[in-house]
Nucleic acid binder design. Structure first.
Lengths: 151, 151
DNA sequence: TGACAATTATTTCGTTTGCAACGAAATCAT
DNA sequence: ATGATTTCGTTGCAAACGAAATAATTGTCA
């Protein structure tokens, strides 16, 4: 008796797998660069990038906005504060909140990182046509919306 | 004196960030499903999926092929072997190698997982038009090729 | 052949991770 | 007001991670 005909699943064509592998490779690459050149990790980078927007934000804001678990934000912020890159003061209005802002050195570091980050992104996107970039952009947004909406 | 004009970087438009967030969300969703329904994690799933191809492979093959670090493969394989889902025997030809193959129960589990995995993928892809899927497919391949080639 | 290099899988070990629990502070309900 | 509930940030802790070390086997070449 033969095996029943079975629909095989090719991992290399399986979207969740492809996304995970690509994202891991890109993140690893970025992480190495950030670590070697600037001594920060991905969580710290995301926090700095978010703070560079200028608004005063709390740990929770970052947690909600930048896809990092609260403990991870808390510890990363602590490291950044110890290095003087981020200013961390208790909110006067609400004693539970912490007001986070980029310091001068923090902004200086940010401005050194940005060109590197954009350059890496540009080199990546280089392999795509303009139209492919457009559609990739839209597709990622749609997928993210879908997965965000409970599936 | 004002700040010098500074090119801001919007995280939400930064490809590495978008990929990381989307992949993390999708993976987390899959991981929960695999854990709840089948008691396996992502690494175990990848190994099973790869073994389902039928060839006899080694730990190293999986490591190279499926983007998992060697220790992770080693431990995941060990767990699968303890549960009788994978057969693990030393190679006669080369004593350093381990020959891995799916057992009957292993294949049975695989065949239960596949429809779930494909269903989730389908529900994701549902939000994309046919053309968007095509281009997303090509774009991911191109990007992966690029990052693979040292960038 | 025999010493040395290379390869494979595992293990070790220090770090990171993230869930859960906590204390402090604010908000709500009565 | 006062007590209960909720929100915020941090911390404790067990598990996971991964780089490097190790053990076992094979390959090389003098």
């Amino acid at each position: 008796m033969d095996h029943p005909p079975q629909k095989l699943l090719d991992l290399d064509r399986f979207l969740p797998y492809r996304l995970a592998v690509l994202a891991a490779r890109v993140s690893r690459r970025l992480a190495r660069e950030y670590a070697d050149e600037f001594g920060i990790d991905i969580a710290e980078w995301r926090i700095i990038a978010h703070l560079a927007g200028g608004e005063v934000v709390s740990v929770r804001d970052i947690h909600a906005r930048v896809n990092l678990e609260k403990p991870r934000v808390s510890r990363a912020v602590e490291r950044l504060a110890l290095r003087g890159l981020v200013d961390k003061t208790a909110s006067a209005a609400d004693g539970r909140l912490v007001e986070l802002r980029l310091t001068g050195p923090g902004r200086a570091l940010y401005e050194k990182i940005v060109p590197r980050a954009l350059s890496l992104e540009a080199r990546l996107l280089d392999v795509l046509t303009h139209r492919e970039r457009e559609i990739l952009d839209r597709a990622l947004s749609k997928l993210d919306g879908r997965i965000g909406a409970g599936l």
